[in-house]
């Protein structure tokens, strides 16, 4: 177990091994997402209440799910880099942050585009919307601190502490936002559970959810490998790798 951990913690070993995963992740993404989009846009039946506007769900829901778990993954990488001081984990955290921030922004914007035809307004201070907005601010904080602190490893550690404190705070934030909302809830609309979806509707959703996870890991790995290349540019192994290629 420990040997495995040490091996994977070394950038060189990780770089050599992770390259083999790339085609699988790319394949999964390029297979599932186009399938999900075509299926969701063209073949899934229209909703009896919302008509065709509900098709936004197939991009909104996967983005919203991914937004939360990408924060958790980023903070987990931060925790590893704090405890074991792995350079690789620091790079993983730094590369996950911008992707997660983009995904959260997408979840918010597609949600607004869905809200306009559904509720007649782009934005309402609904509990879920508000906590997603705060999640975006959390990402922004980690990104801003990482940027301001520069490329040094100490800057990475401060950002890692911020990410971990944020992860611990996330349930508290969600909880307080929920209570704040229940007190202010207007009666005019509700986003409570809809009746169960038929299989023709949720099958494309499932394809999209798995697809965006594949996409996330794919982009993350691409960025992480680029980050490793840039950080290790002075070391022998990466130069040799490229000397043979050129």
């Amino acid at each position: 177990m420990w040997r495995w951990f040490h091996e994977w913690g070394s950038p060189r070993y990780f770089y050599a091994r992770s390259g083999r995963l790339l085609p699988y992740l790319a394949g999964l993404t390029l297979l599932l997402i186009p399938t999900g989009i075509v299926w969701g846009l063209l073949y899934a039946p229209a909703d009896y209440q919302q008509g065709h506007s509900y098709r936004i769900m197939y991009v909104h829901v996967p983005a919203a799910i991914l937004a939360q778990s990408s924060y958790a993954m980023m903070a987990a990488a931060g925790m590893v880099s704090l405890i074991w001081r792995l350079k690789l984990a620091d790079a993983a955290m730094q590369t996950a942050a911008p992707i997660g921030a983009w995904v959260t922004a997408i979840a918010l914007i597609t949600g607004a585009l869905w809200g306009k035809p559904m509720w007649g307004t782009y934005w309402v201070w609904d509990a879920r919307l508000t906590s997603t907005l705060i999640l975006l601010f959390l990402f922004a904080g980690v990104l801003a601190l990482r940027q301001a602190a520069g490329p040094s490893q100490s800057g990475g550690r401060a950002a890692a502490v911020l990410a971990v404190v944020g992860l611990i705070n996330l349930p508290i934030i969600k909880f307080s936002v929920d209570w704040w909302f229940t007190l202010h809830q207007p009666a005019s609309f509700s986003v409570t559970e809809k009746p169960a979806m038929p299989i023709e509707m949720w099958a494309p959703l499932l394809a999209m959810v798995i697809g965006v996870y594949g996409w996330f890991f794919w982009v993350w790995l691409l960025r992480l490998r680029q980050e490793i290349r840039e950080r290790e540019v002075r070391s022998e192994w990466i130069r040799q790798r490229y000397q043979n290629e050129f």
Binding site: R55, I56, L113
Partner: peptide
């Protein structure tokens, strides 16, 4: 709305 959301995401 629909194509805007899909276009942006893609």
């Amino acid at each position: 709305y629909v194509f805007g959301a899909y276009g942006l995401t893609v």
